[in-house]
Every structure is written in structure tokens, then in C-alpha cells.
Write a protein that binds this DNA or RNA. Structure first.
Length: 579
RNA sequence: GUCCCCGUAGUUCAACGGAUAGAACGAGGGACUUCUAAUCCCUAGAUAGAGGUUCGAUUCCUCUCGGGGGCACCA
């Protein structure tokens, strides 16, 4: 069964074709209020002007046409009110919707259901996210890329897409040169310092990095060290290799703690070393780029308002723009992607516009399928976070604190819970991820501890709690809970609304994929959880005397639980059995 | 200067060009002998401004005013 929106669109399409109207005018929206119906279309309003008839006349035409054809058994009634044609779904629709929801199962998020048509089949999406820098500890700002990227990956997989997740680690460039300089200066003729650094590399290297940045000509020094590294200097290479190794290990630890799905690729920027000279050559021979007097290679985009794009610096070192060009090429060749997405904060939008424009000028394939999924960056109430200024909140600190608070609440509310540690982790992480994902990707987020780690209201734990409550009802039920309504049941308005809310999830997921906005799913799940809370507060379920009614309520609870768990899974949030 | 993103209740955020602009937090009031009160119910409260397009604009266009970011041979 297709989604109700598709169903109604199809019905309208055949009317439009019969009448010779432009099907592009068709628009189906959920009704703002169930008293109108379940879905509505404003097509009568749009056509009225074109056909020079009143909306009422047009609507009558459409409704008559639909009624003159065999009745669609998923539609119960069609009505017209204040310009809108309203559709109400039939009990058969609800019956089948229920089965579709239960068939999918709660934990089946990444598996395509057999035989089901999925729009993602045969399409590969390359997702670039969680791009950590070498030898730096991730802070809360890094959370956004990780969480948004991971959610998009889960959502895409659920629709049958193949996803290649790549961290694209920042392991190359001048910043790395600065780190090399700082390290070498510290250990010069000082064996003990080497051990000290190796014992606690992340803290020590960060300190050294901050100190080195205070030197006036640090930029030149860093560039020199990086140029040496790039030209193959053996000492720099071996230090670099060690730093990359420990950093990748750290990255894996962080990814595991965040419970991110695994990455298919860890191709850092350094992986594109060999491809870069060829691109420079191509750019020069095609006349896209030119060499400046001091030996740099640049593409002049000033006429397009994109300034000058530098591929190679005058000291011969490459830029990350050049590496990103090589990355597009590599990904297109190796994965033949349908989309190539970069989940990176919006401070880099200018950079990506340059990358895509230069790639276009070079005639690269896959440019139009490449997109910067920009997000607003996370800042503190007092301003931007900066490693160099030292005012960062480390990711681990936030996770630790979230867990600690979750544990405190569990001791207060449910002291007998047997797996406190596990659940505290699930709740803490759920709160943080949900906080991040609930914001529109494009807005900046101000990090307030109280908001980010809240467990009440529109939060991850609210949905987790709702889910746990529903699961508890199912556990305590003495009835056999099937996957269908009892024979002859007639659903009431509340029951229909709750089920429709579940059945609409695929429509929301489609919208998430269309605009790469996971918060739409977050909102939908929150609203569903709200309805569910309201529902079980007003309907005693286990004590309902009428067996048919009781079984109906139970099977609806099962559908809602399944939908919520599955939705949380798609956001990368666990749904504990009890909390 | 120029380019991009954002201006919605006191605060943090929603609203696929659609019907009466929704929530959450905070504020005030209420509901646990009853499936977990991390919950539920009630009350108050908002589209920065001016034009335009449209049957219909928070949404699209133009300008103004505010906030953030980019315009590095940093990544």
C-alpha cells in the first residue's frame, strides 16, 4: 500500500488527465484539523482562476468525476469546505496501515522489507560527516556533524539507499604543520618530553598547539613544516603517521561512545595526495586555473562573486580546496554516487561553493549531485568556542554529565531498575542527540547545559519514557496481542488519529530526504509521543472490560510503540524497555 | 564593501505557498489508593518594518533595520 498522500495524488491525477488539466497543480496536504478530514487539496482554488469558474464549481466537477469511477476502497468520504476538497481515510486503510507498521517491526530500521518497493534501491549516497581534526579532542561543536550525519545515514538506509559514510579526517595541511612544529620544538634534545607526550598525547599536543599559536610567525613555520611533510620528509612523515594513528583510534572511541553506525571509509585528506598533481595539471591545461608570479595556482572566480580559489600555494603546498576536488573525483569514480553530501557547518559554505564551481569548470562528473548540507554552528552563551582560546566544552564532558544526571533521575524515580548504567547512558545520549537534532539544521545553536541536558518536555527522554510506558503496558497484558484489529471493530476518532500519525511517518521521512532536514522527523515523533501520552492517560487499557475494545487499544499501542522505537532508531537514539 | 544563513510568545524552537501561526521551557492554577507523575489537563503570551506577487504569505520577490558567518597561499 502506498502512503495516503500518494494515494490521493494518484486519484487526483487520473481526474486531471481525464479533464486535461495540468497535473503539476496537484497538491495534497494533511488536514490541519480532523473535523475536515485526513487530507485536503487546494486544487479547486488553483483551478478556479484558470478555468474561470468558482472553486465550488471546480470542486463539484472533481468530486463528481471521482465518484463516477469505481470507489477507491481506501477513501471513506470526500467533502468540500471553504475551498478545500477533503478526504477521509477508510477503515480498510487503517487496517492495512496497521499491518504495514507491524510488519516492519521496531528494530528493522536498516533492513529493507522484502518485496517492498523502495525509492533508494540502486542509489548510493556518500555522506561526509564527523570530520575530526588530528590530535584535537572533539568538543560539543563536533556533535552536530556526527549526529546529523548519522541520522541521515540511518534514514537513507531505511529507504533502501546504499550509504558510504566517510569521516574525511583533517590530517593534512598547514594546521598539521603547526602541530609538527610544536611537537618537534618540544621534544628537541629532550627525550623525557617524548615520553610525556606519548603518555597523554591529546592533552599534551593540545597544549603545545595552543602555545605554538602564540608565536608571531607560527603561520610561516607551520607552512614550512607542512611543505616538508608533503614533499616526503621522513621525520615529519613518521611523526605524522603516529599522530594519525592515535587520532583515528580516538575517533573510533568517540564514534562508539556516540553509538554512531560504522563508517565505510576513513579517507583522510592525505589519501588524495597522488590525485592532486593531475588535477592541477588539468586545471592549467584547460585554462581554468593560472599560475601567479610567485608560483601559486589559482582559479579566478571574482567575477562570479566567489573570489579567488587557491589550488596550490606559492610554496608548492596543496590546499584543502584541491583535496576536496580530488575527493569528488574519487567518490564519483569509486561509488558512482547519486548524491555526495557534506555535513559541515555553515562557515564553510563559501569554500564549498568554490569547490563545486571549480569542479564544474573542470568538467567533473557528479558536481550537481554534490551538496553542502550546512548547519549552524554551536556556540556558548558567551560566544564562539575556540580550541586556541581554550573555552571549549569537550564532548566527553557533556556525555559524562548527561549520564550522571540521568543516573540521578533514575535513582529518584525508579530505584529498582536493574540495568541502571546502561539505561543512564541511553537516556543521557538520547537527550543530547535529540537536543541537537530537534533544531533546524540551519540555525545556530546556543549551548546551555540546562536545555541540552533536560529530560522533560520536548526532549529525547520524553519520547523514550513514552515508549517505555507503552512497552510496559504490552508486557503486562494478559491478552494475546496480534497484528490486526479484532473482527468487526469500528475505530473511534482518537484511535484513527493516532494510527494516521503512525502511518504518516514515511511521508515525513520523504520530506527529510528531500530537504535533508532530520528535525522534521524529530517533530513528528514528538507529536506522536504527545498524542500517545494523552491517549493512555484518558484510556485505561489493561482494565478495559470489553475484550474487543481492549484488544483494539492494545494493538494500537503496539503500532505506536513500534513507530516510536523505529523513529528513535532512525535518529540514533535507543529506546529502553524500562526507565 | 560583498556573498551566505537567520530574525516568530519572556526564552529555545516548529509551521512541505493553504483553513484558527503550533510546541517546549519559564510563569500561574489543577490531577498520583488506578497500565512508571521523566506524565497529563487548564490559563496568559508572538510573525522586526515597509512594499510587491497570489484566491491565499511566517514561507516567494524588493528594500530597510537587527544578529551570526564567510570573503586566509587555515581547515
Amino acid at each position: 500500500m502506498s502512503s495516503p498522500k500518494e494515494l490521493i495524488t494518484t486519484i487526483l491525477s487520473s481526474v486531471f488527465e481525464r479533464c486535461g488539466w495540468d497535473v503539476a497543480l496537484i497538491d495534497v496536504v494533511p488536514s490541519p484539523d480532523t473535523r475536515f478530514g485526513d487530507y485536503a487539496t487546494p486544487v479547486a482554488l488553483k483551478l478556479a482562476k484558470i478555468l474561470e469558474k468558482s472553486p465550488q464549481e471546480v470542486a463539484t466537477l472533481i468530486i463528481e468525476d471521482i465518484k463516477s469511477n469505481p470507489k477507491n476502497e481506501y477513501i471513506d468520504s470526500i467533502s468540500f469546505e471553504s475551498g478545500f476538497i477533503n478526504f477521509r481515510m477508510s477503515d480498510l486503510f487503517y487496517k492495512e496501515a496497521l499491518q504495514a507498521i507491524l510488519k516492519e517491526g521496531p528494530r528493522n530500521g536498516v533492513k529493507a522489507t522484502e518485496g517492498e518497493e523502495q525509492e533508494g534501491r540502486g542509489k548510493t549516497v556518500v555522506l561526509d560527516y564527523f570530520q575530526l581534526n588530528i590530535a584535537k579532542q572533539p568538543h560539543v561543536g563536533h556533535l552536530r556533524s556526527a549526529v546529523i550525519g548519522d541520522a541521515l545515514k540511518r534514514i537513507l538506509l531505511s529507504r533502501g539507499y546504499r550509504v558510504v559514510a566517510d569521516t574525511h579526517v583533517g590530517d593534512w595541511g598547514t594546521q598539521f604543520g603547526i602541530l609538527l612544529y610544536a611537537y618537534k620544538k618540544a621534544v628537541q634534545g629532550n627525550e623525557r618530553e617524548i615520553d610525556a607526550i606519548k603518555n597523554d598525547p591529546f592533552i599534551k599536543l593540545q597544549e603545545l598547539y595552543v602555545i605554538a599559536n602564540q608565536e608571531e610567525d607560527i603561520h610561516e613555520k607551520g607552512k614550512m613544516e607542512f611543505a616538508k611533510l608533503e614533499k616526503g620528509d621522513s621525520e615529519n612523515r613518521s611523526i605524522w603517521k603516529w599522530m594519525v594513528e592515535i587520532s583515528m583510534k580516538k575517533l573510533e572511541d568517540n564514534a562508539a561512545r556516540l553509538k554512531l553506525l560504522s563508517f565505510e571509509e576513513h579517507r583522510g585528506e592525505s589519501a588524495y595526495e597522488e590525485a592532486m598533481p593531475l588535477i592541477v595539471e588539468l586545471a592549467l591545461t584547460r585554462g581554468v586555473a593560472k599560475k601567479t608570479e610567485d608560483g601559486a595556482v589559482v582559479v579566478d572566480l571574482t567575477k562570479e562573486g566567489l573570489d579567488e580559489a587557491v589550488l596550490v600555494k606559492s610554496d608548492g603546498a596543496t590546499t584543502y580546496l584541491l583535496r576536496d576536488l580530488a575527493t569528488i573525483q574519487y567518490r564519483k569514480v569509486h561509488y558512482d554516487f547519486w548524491k555526495n553530501l557534506y555535513v559541515v557547518d555553515n562557515r564553510q559554505s563559501h569554500h564549498f561553493r568554490q569547490v563545486f564551481r571549480v569542479a564544474e569548470l573542470l568538467g567533473f562528473e557528479g558536481v550537481e549531485a554534490s551538496e553542502h548540507i550546512e548547519f549552524g554552528f554551536m556556540k556558548l552563551p558567551e560566544g564562539a568556542m575556540s580550541t586556541r582560546k581554550g573555552n571549549v566544552i569537550l564532548l566527553t564532558a557533556v556525555l559524562d554529565e548527561a549520564e550522571r544526571r540521568a543516573r540521578a533521575v533514575i535513582y529518584e524515580k525508579n530505584p529498582n531498575l536493574h540495568n541502571v548504567d546502561e539505561v543512564a547512558k541511553q537516556i543521557g545520549l538520547g537527550a543530547i542527540k535529540f537536543f541537537d537534532l530537534s533544531h533546524n539544521r540551519k540555525s545556530d545553536i546556543v549551548f546551555h547545559w540546562e536545555d541540552a541536558l533536560s529530560f522533560e518536555g520536548k526532549t529525547g527522554p520524553y519520547i523514550q519514557y513514552t515508549c517505555a510506558r507503552l512497552k510496559s503496558i504490552l508486557r503486562k497484558s494478559a491478552d494475546e496481542i496480534g497484528d490486526a484489529f479484532p473482527e468487526g471493530v469500528v475505530l473511534d476518532a482518537e484511535e484513527r488519529e493516532l494510527l494516521l500519525h503512525c502511518a504518516r511517518i514515511p511521508e515525513t521521512i520523504q520530506r527529510v530526504i528531500d530537504a535533508w532536514l532530520p528535525h522534521l522527523l524529530v517533530d513528528h515523533l514528538f507529536e506522536l509521543a504527545q498524542s500517545a501520552n494523552e491517549f493512555y492517560h484518558s484510556h485505561p487499557i489493561l482494565t478495559e472490560h470489553d475484550e474487543g475494545k481492549r484488544k483494539t487499544l492494545l494493538v494500537i499501542v503496539r503500532a505506536v510503540t513500534t513507530t516510536l522505537s523505529r523513529g528513535l532508531y532512525l535518529l540514533g537514539i535507543d529506546a529502553p524497555e524500562e526507565m
